[in-house]
């Protein structure tokens, strides 16, 4: 036996790979896929427990490109949150990973996105955000910034929907923003999203190399690299590992998840409290006004109940219940349908 590297559940990294991508070479989404593969591997996700769900668009094709042996659900445009809700309710042991884009989430699917957040569905919800419609050749999406330019020179006049700001406003319990080109930040945030019990929203700016990577676009590699402001440097520590590094007091915020894992947020050049909802909204507004893109774990609340808990669902996945668990007893039945005459 060669000394193949395996993860904490004994699986090699290859298990987490998928079919070859059919997206454009250099697409930010492909980088995200690679970071996802790393995060799923490191986190030790069991492939049979993973439900990869998506809507329609370039982003929504990506579930085919990782963990080939897991179940995938490439559904309807903008309607993935409802299907993800059904899947999670049917089997609460599934790790639901939803992958969407800015058209899928911010336009056609905005309603379902909002209501999934209200319900705090336990899932990781990724938005691969490139500010345009790639598959239909570059039209603006609702996350395009005012003044951002299309390849043909057309300027966007309509205000951008900030999905992180919206999510925080709606009561989301985990909101992060990152950049497809920043694996160091994105991988731990993805792992934290898997560990979080509730809807974990990750807005990942992911440049469209074909239609939205030119001068004048605010979603290009060059623009994002130049304007990104990271709130902190995250590290993710899985439950079975000990925190070994020493940190200067006051330089690290330690967030502990239900499963015993941690995300450590190392302080950069500013104070930031990710438990402060109002503070998070302020930072989003302030940085946007300066033309900056703030990244990091913007907000987290690990104490809120998720949908399954709020609905007081049995711990047993509903799919495993049988006739004897579900039917009314014969005794109760005769009382219930007793003749009245």
């Amino acid at each position: 036996m060669s000394a193949t590297h395996v993860n904490i559940i004994g699986l090699p990294r290859d298990v987490y790979k998928g079919l070859p991508t059919t997206l454009c070479a250099g697409c930010g989404h492909n980088s995200i896929t690679n970071h996802l593969i790393k995060a799923l591997y490191e986190f030790g996700v069991e492939p049979h427990r993973l439900a990869k769900m998506s809507g329609i668009g370039c982003s929504s094709k990506t579930p085919a490109y990782f963990v080939e042996q897991a179940h995938g659900y490439n559904g309807l445009h903008g309607r993935m949150p409802s299907a993800a809700t059904g899947a999670k309710l049917a089997n609460r042991e599934l790790l639901v990973l939803g992958i969407s884009g800015d058209g899928d989430t911010a336009s056609i699917g905005l309603g379902q996105f909002c209501h999934m957040i209200r319900r705090n569905l336990d899932c990781a919800y990724l938005i691969e955000n490139n500010g345009c419609y790639g598959l239909t050749k570059g039209q603006f999406s609702a996350t395009a910034d005012v003044g951002s330019k299309q390849k043909n020179g057309k300027v966007n006049d309509y205000s951008a929907i900030d999905l992180c700001g919206l999510a925080i406003e709606l009561g989301a319990t985990f909101v992060a923003r990152s950049f497809s080109g920043d694996g160091k930040q994105l991988v731990p945030l993805l792992e934290a999203a898997f560990a979080h019990r509730g809807a974990a929203i990750l807005d990942i700016v992911s440049p469209c190399v074909t239609f939205n990577d030119h001068v004048g676009s605010t979603k290009s590699y060059a623009y994002v690299k130049e304007h990104e402001i990271a709130l902190h440097a995250p590290d993710f520590i899985i439950a079975s590992k000990e925190i070994t590094a020493d940190y200067e007091p006051g330089t690290v915020k330690d967030i502990v998840f239900d499963d015993g894992s941690h995300v450590l947020l190392r302080k950069l050049d500013r104070e930031y409290d990710p438990n402060d909802r109002l503070g998070a909204l302020n930072v989003i507004h302030e940085t946007r006004d300066r033309g900056e893109l703030v990244t990091g774990l913007l907000f987290i609340d690990t104490t809120a109940d998720d949908l399954c808990a709020r609905e007081r669902m049995t711990k047993t996945p509903l799919v495993r219940l049988r006739e004897e668990d579900l039917r009314i007893s014969r005794e109760d039945w005769s009382a219930l349908t007793a003749p009245q005459a």
Partner: peptide, 13 residues
Amino acid sequence: AAAGVVFGAGWAG
């Protein structure tokens, strides 16, 4: 969305 929940849950068994 109601139909979405149904066809997500039906898929999951």
